[in-house]
């Protein structure tokens, strides 16, 4: 029975082997290790758990993580859309090079991104020295965290919007133009509704990436408790103090909050996509 469990009467072999290996490897490398978070938290009393999670320092770090990631995702939504638009629709010198460079934050180690951005934006850095006299401090402030998170999330919106822009039906724009719509009007009511779901998906991915980011942030953030300390760093500090239970409790709450938030956003995006597909 080679096609057991398949619908198409599949003649291809190897389902059992591939599936078995996939599940075993997934279990060993990802699922069993992750489940230790729940096991470890279960050893704490409710009071211990609450004291760790509701501590002002923890709450502040979580708020900062979510807020900075949100701002960075917003910046990436706007500029990612713009970059995707320019790359897909206009011609300029070295376009291929620029297009390739967009993926740099995917490939560049986060520690390198961290020291580079800090050198770039600190008070005597390349850019920082022009901003600081005007009272704009980036490095060692929450603003620096936003800059680092914008960097790591930059490719997501560009790369999700680009294929959608490429596949847009040009005749619809032609129809809008021939009916007398201005270019701006066409963009707002014809193009934007079609690329908005991809933009939202891309910024959600950027947001998710930013929430857990550690390497690029710790160099530029200054890491002051109650001011520029993000949640992953707080978990790291607890681990270094051998407070494993505390670290685990924070990690659990942080993971659950981010998963439910991402789940909610995905639901909204999927509904919008369905609406766009049905309403067009």
């Amino acid at each position: 029975m080679p096609d057991k469990g398949t619908k198409r009467g599949n003649v291809l072999p190897g389902f059992g082997l591939a599936m078995g290996f996939t599940l075993a490897y997934l279990g060993l490398v990802v699922l069993i290790p992750l489940s230790t978070i729940i096991l470890k938290t279960a050893t704490m009393t409710w009071g211990q758990f609450w004291d760790t999670v509701a501590a002002p320092r923890t709450l502040y770090a979580c708020r900062l993580s979510f807020f900075a990631s949100f701002v960075a995702a917003l910046i990436n939504a706007v500029f990612g859309l713009l970059v995707a638009w320019v790359l897909e629709r206009y011609d300029f010198p070295m376009k291929r090079f620029v297009d390739g460079l967009v993926d740099l934050p995917f490939a560049l180690p986060t520690a390198v991104a961290g020291i580079v951005l800090t050198t770039f934006y600190s008070g005597n850095g390349w850019i920082g020295r022009y901003l600081e006299p005007h009272g704009i401090k980036i490095a060692y402030t929450p603003l620096g965290i936003v800059v680092a998170l914008t960097f790591v999330g930059l490719p997501f919106v560009v790369r999700t919007v680009q294929p959608v822009l490429r596949d847009l039906d040009i005749q619809v724009e032609g129809a809008a133009a021939s009916l007398g719509a201005s270019r701006l009007h066409t963009f707002r009511s014809v193009i934007l509704p079609q690329i908005l779901p991809a933009t939202l998906t891309g910024s959600t991915l950027a947001f998710a990436r930013a929430l857990g980011e550690y390497g690029s942030v710790i160099f530029i953030a200054g890491n002051m408790p109650m001011r520029s300390e993000i949640t992953p760093l707080l978990i790291m500090i607890k681990l270094e103090q051998f407070d494993y239970a505390g670290a685990t409790a924070i990690a659990l709450v942080f993971l659950l909050t981010s998963f439910s938030l991402l789940f909610l956003i995905n639901m909204v995006v999927l509904r919008r996509q369905a609406e766009a597909a049905g309403g067009a």
Binding site: L34, I37, L211, P232, I235, L255, L262
Partner: peptide
């Protein structure tokens, strides 16, 4: 991808 690297090390 959606688990912070710090949490990945922690487990």
């Amino acid at each position: 991808f959606s688990v912070s690297p710090v949490i990945a090390g922690m487990v």
